[in-house]
Structures are given as structure tokens and as C-alpha cells.
Amino acid sequence: MAKELAIEIKDLHRYYQDIKAVQGVSLQIEAGTVFSLLGPNGAGKSTTISVISGLLRPTEGDAEIFGKSIISQANQAKQHIGVVPQEVALYQDLTGRENLAFWGKMYGLRGAKLEARIGEILEIIELTDRQKDKVEKYSGGMKRRLNIGVALLHQPDIVIMDEPTVGIDPQSRRKILESVKALNEQGMTVLYTTHYMEEAQELSDRIAIMDHGKVIAEGTHNELVRIVGELDRVELTFGAEIDGKLDNWSQLPGIKSVTTDTTAAALLVDDSDQALPHLFEAAARDHLKIISVAVYEPNLETVFLHLTGRALRE
């Protein structure tokens, strides 16, 4: 028997005047899973999330949250969601506790239930000791945690997190990733956007890769990696500018694709052990000095490169 669908996105389009931010995205996210949207900046992840959270109306298409349309049954749909915005969206001049109390009320909590929830959330985000301090006095990591805590107040079935780890220290990042896992273990569905493939890989049951407003691949980590087969990724750095000298390298034996930067290149190859000698030879022929070589086993980065011809972080 198929699992219940937490989120179903149906042929979603969203345009800003001439810019087509999202074009025909369709996804099904099962309840109780962690689902990641992976893609570079500007791929359309945040727009997709904004539509699902009911903040933007789709130009075309619809999204359903546990069967409730985000267009026609917005309020019922929103009851299931807790959104963690990318930027810290809190009142800096109120204390942590005051923030939680206010947002709790906005989610419709009142009285003893609200008080109890605030206490629980403060424990979860480890801010019990600092609850009476104004948010403006918190560190970046503490603000991020509170930012997440607010979204959990009403015990939503789905937590939507928009790049929650951007610009924070490794320790805080680790805490956030752990909390995502913990939430999922409690049965929450998590929709997570990131442009860090390691995060997507570590957390997700399923991943959708987005680029230019479209989903270009979707599946479990293993399914996605299989798209590129057994291809290895080789990254070369040169001592001088490449200047188009690599144009014919894709014809070399075992080389599947070549993408270049001014002084660096990324290549997908059948087997790196066999390909590397050919590469060194070609470099010597073209008078290019290789400064560094790195070889990677197939991963999401490789998949993105394979599908788009660009690196994820370009």
C-alpha cells in the first residue's frame, strides 16, 4: 500500500513578469520522509517553497498539503506546515521567549498549551538559559535555532526549511542537521532546500535536483548517482589560462565530458586510473602545466555536472 502523500506539487509554474522562476514542477513527497530540493542559487527552490507555504500564488498549477489545496484551502493547508525562512525572521527587540509566545499565538496556541510548548521548544533548541535575553544579543547560531524553534511551535506535520545552514559556523550547522534528523525520527515530514550536496546526501530519503526553474532529476541518492553510471569526476588546475586548449580533450579515450574555467577544468571519465595518463600527455602536448589533480567517486555534484554541464556552485 502506497504511503500517504504529505505534499503533492502539480505542474507548478510561477512567473515574475518575464522571468520564469518555476516552470512545470511536479513532485510527490511522502509523509514521514526528508525530501531535499538541491540546486544552485536562482534554481527556483525558494520560489517553489514560497508557493507551497502559501506565500506566493502559483501562476499555474497547484500544490496540496495532505490533500488540501494551497490555493482554495490555504488556511487548512497552512495548519500542517511550519516554515523556517532562509533569513532569520524574528523580532530582534523582543526576548527569545517573547518571540516564541507571539508566534505561538499566531499559530493559534493559547494558555497552558502555549506555555508548555514554549518550554519544550526552548529545551529542543537549547535556549532555556537565554530565553529572557533580547534576540539582538544572540549569536548567529542561536538566532538560527530560535528561527527553527518558532516553526515547530504548533507541532506541524511538515517542516519546510529554506537553506537553514547558510552562513553559519560548522558547529551550529551540525546541530541543525542533527535536529532535522531528530524531527524526522519523531515522524515529521521535512522539506529541505540546500545547495550543499553533502547536506542533501546526509539527510534525505529523496532528492530533487532543480535548475532554471525545472526539476531535472529526482530520486533517492543512489538512484540519482546511477544516472552518471560509474563515471569518476576529475578536477584539474593549471598554471596558466586554458585559452580553449582543452576544446578537443573530450575526444580523448575514456573522457565523457569536459567543462572549463579560466585555469581549471572538471572532467567526467569512465575510469580515472586509465584516463589520467592520457590527460597528462595532452597537457604536455598543449604546453599546459598541471598544478593539482583531484579525483572523485560519483556523487550528486557529478550528477549535476553531468545533467547541466555546470558545477553546482557556479
Binding site: S53, G54, L55, A74, N75, K78, Q79, I81, V83, P85, E87, V88, A89, L90, Y91, Q92, W103, M106, Y107, G108, V150
Partner: peptide, 11 residues
């Protein structure tokens, strides 16, 4: 500050 958007997100 982004809190308005978040308010809309709370139904």
C-alpha cells in the same frame, strides 16, 4: 525583516 512573510505563513 522577513517577519511579515512569516506571519502570512502562520495562516
Amino acid at each position: 525583516n522577513g517577519t511579515l512573510e512569516r506571519l502570512f505563513g502562520t495562516a
